[in-house]
Design a protein around this nucleic acid. Structure first.
Lengths: 197, 197, 197, 197
DNA sequence: AATGAATGAGAATTCATTCAT
DNA sequence: TATGAATGAATTCTCATTCAT
């Protein structure tokens, strides 16, 4: 029996990221993905039900990974809320810094999926944001963050802001250096909620 | 006499907003737009070169209007930088509050156009952000805002954050009330850059 | 405005009969039908929803025509039941004698449609058989046909028998001359139900 | 030792009947057949050249069996032509009464094969019909059947009629009870050719 | 200007068959 | 023999755009 190569699925996902980033999800062709992955068109369908499920899987993996990484830090007692917030932001940036293509897909297509029924990455995505909110709550309790922060607005505003900066970097890395933007963001976020003085 | 023409063109744009919002740009059909506008498919092409140019025009109009509105306030000497920043944010929200469909299209499709060559709405879009940056600079000069704010990060971060909140509102207005989010944002933005104390 | 040619639908149907007869419904390509009809592939879909609906329409037209023709004779008082039965059979044969292709499609594909939900030709088809049954009933009442004939079996048996002979003729007209088979059938049918003596 | 082989081949054939009956030959998948047979897709091709040859084999087996059964009765001197005709019809019905699936395949797909070159079941099929004709000839010689019967028409008409009734039964056994139809058919057939009085 | 019929390129998906193991 | 992963040809249907009227 011809045995499954074992990494074909991964190759498809990697190829898909590249093609989706280059052409946009809607203009991407399965045949291009297959070609880049070095397999036949039909084989794509051995691993994925259809084009959308590839995109879904990409986001699922991305957010599952982020959640996994954050969880490890989340409960640590030796870190302040401010430090945890920094870590959260770092995680996102680290996740993309070596994968500009993934960043492009992330900023361009997440909305599309979100508007399309209940994709399965949603639970991880919300878990991540939820942990962020929790960290801020903790900071408020310790008197580091202001009491009157609107947590819902904060979390989505921050998420949107970060996403947009990643977008800019992914398209023009020279003009928008990721590291510089990362520290700029940290400052903004912390200032926006820190107790005055 | 442009009445007839202007009328139809406008009707096409309005229909397009509704259809794009409902189906997403890529899945929208020209025939649906024509039908909603009450004209024939062929007529659409008398007013627009192709599907993309309708979308382009939508954004062009949107940003031109915002720029026009902001310009009027921008130079006023009787307003502080903080007040001007509030106005800027208000303008964006006011532009959408009665046009949820436009908001949906705005958040979902602006990236697509941005990644597609140099759409002509870009100059207005950048002018708007530029004025925002200028307002912040003014605030810094007057000692209201912190000197060390990264202006590039600030403007894009803020833009991204606002956009995302508008997105949430457009899809779930009950859960994300626009007015509440607007004041939450104002607080965050101002706190994030205000001089401590 | 480009006006509808008015007979394009008909040309598609005629082309479809030829292609379906040659290749069988399942192996027929829309592109072949379009080509034979002298139009583009896309145009086929202006007139028909999909491939199956073309086939459906073919049968619908066929049976509607047969029913129409039979109705005219059905009520005549000057004809005996025997004569009416002859007419019924003649109608079917006449319907095919100049359209061997239609005959082929008829015998090969009617079952497929019948097994596929409720195609709309069914009502005509059943009306036709129903009239046949009624004619036989009439003959029984007048003492021409035997009382103990199983009408259900008779009508379906006869239909199946005729269909099969048409099949043979359509494929090998030389070996199975239609006219000869027609009279053979008439004899069989009448003998099978005629009152002995 | 053919146990293993013979076994699997048979299982494939049985599975194929079920799947062909359910989905129609053209829409049946080899993978479904393999699954139902409890073997792998590849194994199907160890026993059959391709999909069509499975169908072929089904018909070949069916008709070979019928011929074999008929032959045993065919030469008996103690039976009249009428009795032999009854037997012929019984054989067909008995062949299906416990195999509705086979009946469905038989009525739906035999034409397809017949139109497709020279399938190898043809010789059995024709032998069967030939014997039927011979029986009728015998009856004519003995003065039981009418001299003027068109034997060709008779045999094909009868075959077509029987097939159609089997079709009806296979799809709606409640509405078209096989036994009742069988006796109805016998009556019709015999009456259609019996010498008057 | 207006119409809407006509076009035809385009792409996702299926599945019989092959073949490496 | 047996497996089932891999192949890739094949075909329906869609829809932006064109164009005859």
């Amino acid at each position: 029996m011809r045995t499954k190569t074992g990494n074909k699925e991964q190759r498809i996902l990697e190829a898909a990221v590249a093609i989706f980033a280059r052409d946009g999800y809607h203009h991407s062709r399965i045949s291009d993905i297959a070609e880049l992955a070095g397999i036949s068109v039909g084989s794509v369908y051995l691993y994925f039900d259809n084009k959308e499920s590839i995109l879904n899987r990409l986001f699922s993996d991305l957010w599952a990974r982020l959640v996994g990484q954050l969880k490890a830090q989340y409960r640590r007692q030796d870190l302040t809320a401010v430090e945890k917030l920094d870590i959260m932001i770092d995680l996102i940036f680290n996740g993309f810094i070596h994968h500009a293509d993934l960043a492009v897909v992330f900023v361009n297509e997440q909305n599309f999926l979100l508007n399309h029924g209940r994709p399965d990455f949603i639970k991880h995505y919300e878990a991540y944001l939820q942990m962020g909110t929790q960290i801020v709550r903790e900071g408020i309790k310790h008197g580091v963050f202001r009491k009157d922060v609107d947590l819902v607005v904060l979390r989505h505003f921050t998420f949107g802001g970060i996403r947009h900066l990643i977008h800019l970097w992914a398209h023009e890395p020279k003009r928008f250096p990721l590291l510089q933007m990362r520290s700029g963001i940290k400052e903004l976020v912390k200032n926006s909620i820190r107790v005055a003085r």
